[in-house]
């Protein structure tokens, strides 16, 4: 996609923001940046408000995961602002961002393989002082499978259970914003549905979630809002249902 084509697409940012009156948790404005010298993100705008699931979809190489990593300080942000809970966190180090209430579940290598499930969750609460038993109990209630196998090494679990450990670890800090990078990649349909259901439950319990998903159709079906990225910038945005109904979006990214 050329930059000209992007320019021809009028952005409907304001209209989307007006539809949601909730308190903004994350507001990205004109974010540019990349790993090396080249900018992968060419000005990304996004907003996540309180208690909503926002899905980022788009073709391979669109910058979906990169946008997420930009929020978490894992790449050089060269322009724009990333405001979380009223503070611009662009350029912060990950361990400071964690303390600011943002937790991130990477797509791969997202567990401590040689540690037990229980220890993985404890590491998630590393920055917390005092009693963590309440949070542990909450995570074990969300993922009953994990409670049974709490002393098992995380590296010995199935793909779906590993993803649960990874999400559980991120939830231990009671974040206000959870970033999930393709949580269902490589999972069986059964686990995918389970992960999506847990995501919905977390939203209903008050969490804001930003989700990058390959399974765009399924994710948009329950998302409160969706952004379609292409070539490092916004292409479309709207409610999940709007995007699913949009013919261009359907043809381009959802496989017709």
């Amino acid at each position: 996609m050329t930059s000209q084509a992007i320019a021809e697409q009028p952005m409907s940012k304001n209209s989307v923001q007006q539809k949601y009156s909730g308190k903004p948790i994350l507001t990205m404005t004109g974010v540019r940046g990349g790993y090396g010298d080249a900018d992968i993100l060419q000005g990304v705008d996004m907003q996540v408000t309180e208690q909503e699931i926002v899905v980022i979809v788009g073709p391979n190489g669109a910058g979906k995961s990169t946008a997420m990593k930009a929020i978490f300080g894992l790449l050089k942000v060269r322009g724009g602002s990333i405001v979380v809970n009223g503070t611009d966190i662009a350029g912060w180090k990950p361990n400071r961002i964690v303390q600011h209430g943002v937790c991130y579940v990477p797509q791969v290598n997202n567990i401590f393989r040689e540690m037990t499930i229980h220890e993985n969750l404890e590491m998630g609460a590393f920055l917390r002082k005092g009693d963590i038993s309440e949070s542990l109990e909450r995570v074990y209630t969300l993922f009953p499978d994990l409670k049974e196998r709490r002393s098992a090494l995380a590296g010995n679990l199935s793909g779906g259970q590993r993803q649960m450990v990874a999400m559980g670890r991120a939830l231990m800090l009671n974040p206000s914003l959870l970033l999930l990078d393709e949580p269902t990649a490589g999972l069986s349909p059964k686990y995918m549905e389970q992960i999506f259901e847990i995501t919905r439950n977390l939203r209903d319990a008050g969490l804001s979630i930003l989700l990058v998903e390959q399974h765009a159709k399924q994710a948009l079906a329950f998302a409160d809002k969706g952004y379609v990225l292409a070539a490092g910038s916004n292409r479309h945005e709207g409610t999940g249902q709007e995007l699913l109904a949009d013919r261009e979006v359907a043809e381009m990214f959802l496989g017709g």
Partner: peptide, 23 residues
């Protein structure tokens, strides 16, 4: 101990240890 586990975490998966806030 907490710091001992953090050492093992760093040995196991340094990137994730940093994401968990380990200095």
């Amino acid at each position: 101990t907490k710091w001992g586990k953090a050492m093992r975490a760093m040995s196991d998966n340094p990137d994730l240890a940093l994401l968990s806030g380990v200095d």
